[in-house]
Structures are given as structure tokens and as C-alpha cells.
Design a protein around this nucleic acid. Structure first.
Lengths: 345, 345
DNA sequence: TTGTAAGCGTTATCAC
DNA sequence: GTGATAACGCTTACAA
């Protein structure tokens, strides 16, 4: 039923090799033969079998991505960037989703990729708890090149990540610039590397500014709006005089806004609020939310580009292409929720 | 470098076929040989090459999904369901994203799938404008089985979709039940099939209730919060006495909420607002949003299940497995933005 | 410019 | 139970 190279060759009265050459645009071929072959291809509706090609050429022209939480803003945007770049480079993309991002048993997915002989792997699962323990030199040796996203840079590994620390610093610095002095923070879950980085960015900046931050001025959330609510309540209970709150993502900021409304607190006059992510809705929160934007699509694109370099290097036996860590800058988006000095109408 | 079946066979002093049998758990094999072979596999770190297997077995054990807008709530959740079900059924998943969902030139992606010999395709791109014209019997014949998501059911095609019409009807009926009588609607872009369905659901329900709806009571949005703002302004300009607004997704509802705040309109006392989707943030809007929930993950799962049935049928030459249309119910989530009769404090 | 033969890593057939 | 041998559809030497 399926048309093969042989069928085309027979119909065009040439050898299979000639057909192969036409299909792959390689080598010199006379106009007449080329046209005859192309006609036969058309007529038969021939489609090359990439599996067979991969088998002999020892490269599948496919990459694999392992992601988690693609129903959320960050991961989904990163995935878009990855897919886009794969498409442009001519790679097919195999997708695998981890239901639990803190899972440490990753061999099933890795095995499947190896079995399919993918040329490279993008690990787009956030670094949580000890979910990086599987990364071992001897294991990596038997794996195709890998690029890690949103992970703490480690020697010998290629990592692409957003500069969460600098992003949080921008947010805090902005609040200080606006005249805020008593700043609370609702952090992400602290077993996440990215959450810890944002935390560190806050601490650094407050310290530089000579502002003290009590332990009770930092509460831990879980990225959800509900946890933002709880966090805001706790913060205000301990420190009714807070004039600003930095929530480490926009959902938690949304929860904080809700509590402020319920308590009759004016935003930004009484308390300024800043988020992180710049989800599309944040521009329409009430009031509109100041936040920190990440270049997530770019991160995905870059990860694929880096991966391609690694693959190329390996292919040329320059196996020891120096792995690189890429850190992407963030951008502060200033909106109503933080504008103006405290107390002003 | 890569270990093959042959290497294992050599080390275990058996034939390749025997190793193959061990790997695939098929046929009777003596305990001793099996153990010897397994030891060799371990020792060599052998990984079967699925490409080669696919070549000879004429099935790739992989599915492909074409999606669009996975950075948004609906598509990303559907994708999660698809991936989940693929994983459970042992399929690998090839992902392709359409940058423009209304694109009509889909042959590049389809060709790539055919070239990779995927066993089936899930078309998870919303039906927009004429982006379904590529679906032709003669084209489909040369393609593996396909299941379409979020598309108007058509004879001869397998479709899985949410019952948008019924969902919108639930929303409107709820508003009527709450005593609302002058209801405005902010629709999605009307070249989207899903948007038209929600529209139709509104019209049907209002008609049954004997409530008239003027053309100026329905304004078209583009799913974005900004368009919800514009729509709300337009609605209130023409009809200051509207006591309810149904926005056909939560983002537009958010925009409508913002305008209400700016105009000092009380929600829900002056105007009730209902959305569609139940994005996680909607529970934390101010006030919390009544909305319609879709079973998007389920839709993805079901699509894969249906696809598997089609594949199985084709394989057994019962090529004409009757295609089916599946319509999934929605659920109304009642929250503060619509509770209580109009005018009450 | 084109053709021949070998082989990529599996599984299937049919013997033994 | 197990093992030769021939596919699967393609590319790559190496010839011609």
C-alpha cells in the first residue's frame, strides 16, 4: 500500500539512488531525469519514510522536550518558544509531560527518548526539591545532549534560565524608588530554585538600601492566588503598617489585591503591590498590576539553539563543547498598583 | 558505539531472534536463556531502537498533535489531557504548533507527520474562518486516522468538542433565574465556531424565556480583557439599564469588571457578570466570578481514546469504523459576581 | 550523470 | 525452544 522509493524508481525507470538524490536535492542530476522522477513522485504520491532514513543516517532529526505544568503561564510560553525554534531548524518535537514536577523517577521518559533515538533533549521542568539527583555523569554519558531550562547553573551542564534574582531586585528597587520603606514579600514555594532566587533578589536589594526585613515580613506561598490571600492576611496581621508587598508571581498578587479590597485597604495609596510574570490578565487587575516580565519564549528558543550547537559538536567528535549557562534579563512593567508615594490620594 | 541486538546476541551466545523475543516478552523461552540474555542486556546497556522496530512492524507507536495557542487556558489544558492519555496508552507524542490558528496552509505539518509515519493525528486547532477547507476526502485518504477537537461535527469525521451552546445556555439561564431581565452579551470573535455556538446558546435561552435581545445588546470581542473593556463600555453606553452581562470568556469578563469599577457600578447589585472557562484566577477576581467550566482535559483524553479506536479499526481492515461526534457537558460555577437579585445591597 | 550492492537495527517466516 | 534468512525503506560507498 505505501509507496516506496523503489516504486518511484521503477515508474521513472531509474535507480533508487537517483530518486534518493532527487528527493534530497543532492548531487548533479540531469534536468530530464529529475523531471521524470518528480513526475513519478507526484503521480504515485510518494512520501519519504523518515524512519528508514533515520535508521541508516543515524540521526532522527527530532528533539524531545520534558515539561511540566504547561497549563500555567511560564511553562506554556517556554514550550511555545521551543516548538517554534524546532520548527525553524527542521526538527520534529517529541513532547513528554511530567504530572508531578518534583518526581525523581525520570528513567521511563528518558528511556523512551533514547529508544526513539532523539538527537537531543530539552529538560524544561522546574528545579524542585531533589528532582535533580538523577543528573549523574555516567547517566548523561549514555544520553543525547541535554539542555536544562530554569535550573541553577551547574558545571558541565548547559542551562538556560531567567535571571529571577535580578527580576526580584528590579521589583524591590522600584518600590524603594517610589518611597516605600516597609516592604513585605510573598514568596513562592521555597523548595523551588526560582522561588529562592527571587527571595535572594529581594534580600540583596533591601540590604543594599539599608532596609531591614524581619522574618515575619516574608511569608511563603505556593504560587496560587489562594496562597496569596493567606499570605497577605498574615503579613497585614503582623505588620499593619506595610506600605508595599511584592508577591513573587501575579496569581499571588491577585490574591493579595483581593484581601486588600476586603480589608478596605487602598491600592496603591496605602499599600503598593507588585507581581511577577506579567500574565495578560495582570494589566486588567483592579488596579492594574505592576509586575516583572520574563522572556520565556526567548528562553525556549535559546535552549533549542544551544542544544543544536551541542548536537553539532558531538557529531564532529568535538565532544567536549564547553557547556554554557545563559541568564536572561527581565523587564519591569510599571502600572497603577505601585505608582505614587505612599499616602497620596 | 550504540549497542545492538546483535551485540547482545553475541555476548549471550544466542540468535538475534531470541534476544528479540526476550525484549518483547513473546514466545516461550527457557528460564536459563532468558536470564543469560537479560544479563547481557544489562551488561551492555542495550536499548532497543524503536525506529528500526517501526520500520519493520509498520507502526510507529506515535501520535501527532497539531495545536495552537497553547499559551492560553483552553488549548493548554486540552494538550495536557492528550499527552496524559498518550502516555498511558504507550504512544509517543509529536507536537506541532500553528502560529496562526486561522492558517489554511497545513500541508507542511501534515507532510512531516506522514513522513514520520505517525499512527494517528489529533487536530487541536480551533475552527476559525475557512481553516477547515483543507479537509478533503481524497486528502484524508492518504492520511492516518484523525480526530478533530473543538470543531463543528461533520459527517464522516471524528470530532470531540465541548458543548459550548449548552454552556452559554446555562450561564444565561442562571442570570434569568437570579431575576435579571436586561442581559448584555460580549461574544468571542464570530469567525470562531465556538464563539458562534456560545452566541447561539444565549439567543436560544433568551428566546425561550421570552426576553428580547436587541442587536446592540450583543457586542463582539476577541477573547482579550481589553476587548472586554471596550465591549462593556459600548454595552453600557447604549443600555445603561443592563442588569447583567455575559462575557463569553473569563478574560473579557475581567475587562468588563474593570470598566464597572471605573464607572462606579456595583457588581453584582447593579450588574451581574458571568464569564466562561473558569480560569484559576476567576475565583479571585473582585468580586469572584461566576463562570462556566469546560472539561478540557477530558476532551483531550477522549480524543486520544477515539483515535486509538480508529487506528485499531483501520489495522483490522474494518476501515469504515463509523466516525463519531462526542459532545462534552459543561458545569456552571456560581460565585459572587452574579449572586442575588438586582438592586439588593 | 547514474547504477549496484551493502547495510542501518529490528521483526517475521519457517525451518530444526 | 531456538536459529538462519529475508525483509522493512532508505542512504552510502564504490563503480561504471
Amino acid at each position: 500500500m505505501p509507496v516506496t522509493l523503489r516504486d518511484v524508481a521503477r515508474l521513472a525507470s531509474v535507480s533508487t539512488k537517483t530518486v534518493s538524490r532527487v528527493v534530497n536535492n543532492q548531487g548533479e542530476i540531469s534536468q530530464t531525469t529529475r523531471q521524470r522522477v518528480q513526475a513519478a513522485i507526484e503521480q504515485l504520491g510518494y512520501r519519504p519514510n523518515i524512519l528508514a532514513r533515520s535508521l541508516v543516517s543515524q540521526r532522527s532529526n527530532s528533539l524531545a522536550v520534558v515539561a511540566s505544568g504547561v497549563e500555567y503561564y511560564g511553562p506554556s510560553h517556554t514550550l511555545v518558544g521551543i516548538e517554534q525554534q524546532c520548527y525553524e531548524l527542521g526538527y520534529s518535537l517529541l513532547l513528554s509531560l511530567l504530572p508531578r514536577p518534583d518526581d525523581t523517577n525520570v528513567s521511563p521518559v528518558l528511556d523512551a527518548f533514547v529508544a526513539r533515538r532523539v538527537d537531543g533533549i530539552i529538560w524544561a521542568v522546574p528545579e524542585i526539591g531533589n528532582n535533580r539527583t538523577w543528573i549523574q555523569p555516567d547517566l548523561l554519558q549514555h544520553l543525547p545532549p541535554i539542555v536544562f531550562l530554569s535550573m541553577e547553573p551547574r558545571p558541565g551542564l548547559s542551562v538556560v534560565a531567567v535571571d529571577n534574582r535580578a527580576g526580584a531586585a528590579q521589583a524591590i528597587q522600584h518600590l524603594i524608588d517610589q518611597g516605600r520603606r516597609k516592604i513585605g514579600v510573598i514568596t513562592g514555594p521555597l523548595d523551588w530554585w526560582e522561588a529562592r532566587e527571587r527571595c535572594a533578589g529581594c534580600r540583596d536589594t533591601l540590604q543594599w538600601a539599608g532596609l531591614e526585613i524581619l522574618p515575619s515580613q516574608m511569608v511563603e506561598g505556593d504560587w496560587s492566588a489562594s496562597s496569596g490571600e493567606r499570605g497577605m492576611r498574615k503579613l497585614l496581621a503582623h505588620h499593619p503598617d506595610l506600605d508595599a508587598v511584592f508577591a513573587c508571581n501575579d496569581q499571588m498578587a491577585l490574591g493579595a489585591l483581593g484581601v486588600a479590597h476586603q480589608l478596605g485597604r487602598r491600592i496603591p495609596q496605602d499599600t503598593a503591590i507588585v507581581g511577577f510574570d506579567n500574565i495578560p490578565e495582570s494589566a486588567h487587575f483592579w488596579p492594574s498590576l505592576t509586575t516583572v516580565q520574563q522572556q520565556l519564549v526567548d528562553a525556549g528558543c535559546i535552549a533549542v539553539q544551544v542544544l543544536q550547537k551541542l548536537i553539532e559538536a558531538k557529531r564532529q567528535d568535538r565532544d567536549h563543547a564547553e557547556p554554557m549557562a545563559t541568564l536572561l534579563p527581565t523587564q519591569l512593567i510599571v502600572r497603577a498598583s505601585s505608582l505614587g508615594a505612599p499616602g497620596n490620594a
